[in-house]
Amino acid sequence: MRPPSLARVFYGAALVGVVAALTHLVALLAIPSVAERDAYARVVALGPAFKTVVLPPPGPKSREFPYADPAVAASVCFYDLGAGPVRARAPLGRAAFASLSFHSRRGVAFYALTDRAANKGRMEALIVSPEQLRALVSHDDEDNPSDDLRIVSPTLKGFVMARVLSEGQDLLPQAAEQAGAMSCAAEPIAEAEK
């Protein structure tokens, strides 16, 4: 048997490279659509829509959300824009740092607010779909503009997360209480216009 020519070996190696690159791309782009235990699925499993759930503090035995900070109390609330825009609201307590982050169906954060952006002692935002934003803007009163912070969600479903940093382990319960005071509720357009 003749050994394969150099040209054939190079040709084979190039083909392997092409197959590898294609496999890599397909696998990478397929993961988000086949991942069943993504952050959104884990949040949805915790309770009904529009209900704030305080997450158990991360620990060696509490393994729900990886890379969560044990010094931070967190709560989540998942929303569905099908019934209208959703108002997310979190009061400020005594915590040194508090924030709200807004996550799409795909888990990525599309917006965040920290306590620095708080107004009247709370962090507040109205989550809208692009259509709802258009409807709201067309009804806006120019002389009396809405002071809502409107955030466009890239997907109809998603979730809000409140994070409250505790300044000591003994302050974690208070931080959890503050995180649990977040609310997210559907607000039909007619009401949001006022």
Partner: peptide
Amino acid sequence: AGAADADPYTRARLERDGEIPLALGEG
């Protein structure tokens, strides 16, 4: 990781691990 324009690698890793990332501007 905490931005809407995260790259496909970051997205795939987040989806697979189920992590809720810190948002850009948060931490």
